[in-house]
Computed example of a mutant assay.
Amino acid sequence: MSDVLFGTILSAMSTGLGALIILFISGSMTHRWRDTLLAFTAGIMMAASTMGLIPEALSIGGFLPLAIGTFLGVFTLTLLEKNIPHIDLEHSKKGIEFDEKAMLIIAAITLHNIPEGLSVGVSYASENGGDTGNLIAFAIGLQNAPEGFLVALFLVNQKISKIKAFLIATLTGTIEIVTGLLGYYLTSYVSYLVPYGLAFAAGAMLFIIYKELIPESHGDGHERTSTYSFIIGLLFMVLLIELF
């Protein structure tokens, strides 16, 4: 119980850690750095899903639960994307521009964090709960950090003070604590759901990687840099898997 609580809090609060940067910068983040960061987190999440979640789901439940859970994860993220507005970044050399209203963005980011929290909680309910859960919590946390920064940056651009922007961005990640614990208890007490839950988490992560992170990191002429960053991120997570 202490492990899942610590892991969900760590991954959720990474949103605030990323938002913390807004207090120390005066301008915007260049597209090159932003694309590099997005690609790095994509590599982290790719390794976590393909070397952590998918093998674990396959060993516990076999191929059918893996396939069903993966498509459920993809389908859930597809519904969220179609029905909930989210940050759309204009690809230009001038910097990052936002055109959505603040409350819609806050609600959207908060709701998009629900499957991420579930992913962490379900991972702790697997047979190798500690190892797999820590791995996924770390991967989700790394993905949440730039997300928190972008939310805070958007709010500052809407003339909200830096302190308020930091606090609001941090709060958007707290939903992951609730959904993480929900996912953990649900799969712990209904054990046959574990492989489906792990596969669901993998599907959700793969959707985010291919639909969001990779395209956004390749939209401004930094494809080669982003590709290198993706590979470095993947190898970094593989190294962590091997070490820990």
Rank of each mutant, 00 (worst) to 15 (best):
Y210Q: 14
I96C: 08
W33L: 14
L243Q: 12
G233A: 11
L234K: 04
I241L: 13
L153N: 10
Q143V: 06
A67L: 14
V178M: 06
I177D: 02
I21Y: 09
M51A: 15
I84E: 01
A145V: 04
A102L: 15
I214F: 01
L20V: 03
V151A: 00
L213F: 02
L206F: 06
I177L: 14
L235R: 07
Y228G: 08
A201P: 06
L5C: 13
M45V: 08
T179A: 04
I231R: 02
A139C: 04
V190H: 10
G219L: 00
I25N: 05
H91T: 14
I44A: 05
D3P: 13
M51Y: 15
V74C: 03
L181C: 05
L171T: 13
F24G: 06
I136M: 03
S11A: 15
N144I: 06
D131C: 12
T110Q: 05
K93G: 13
W33K: 15
S28Q: 12
N83V: 10
D131F: 15
L171A: 12
N113L: 07
A169I: 01
G43V: 02
S123D: 03
G173T: 04
I241P: 06
S11F: 11
A204S: 14
F244D: 09
F24A: 11
L243A: 11
G69N: 04
N113D: 09
T76R: 05
A202R: 04
S11C: 10
P215Y: 07
T179F: 09
G27C: 02
P65D: 08
M45F: 07
L17I: 12
M51V: 07
G7I: 10
L198V: 07
P115S: 11
M46T: 12
T227L: 08
A145D: 02
S188W: 06
I106G: 07
G148F: 01
I22V: 13
L17V: 13
F149L: 03
I44S: 03
I209Y: 01
G133K: 06
L235M: 15
T41C: 13
I114L: 08
I87M: 10
I68G: 01
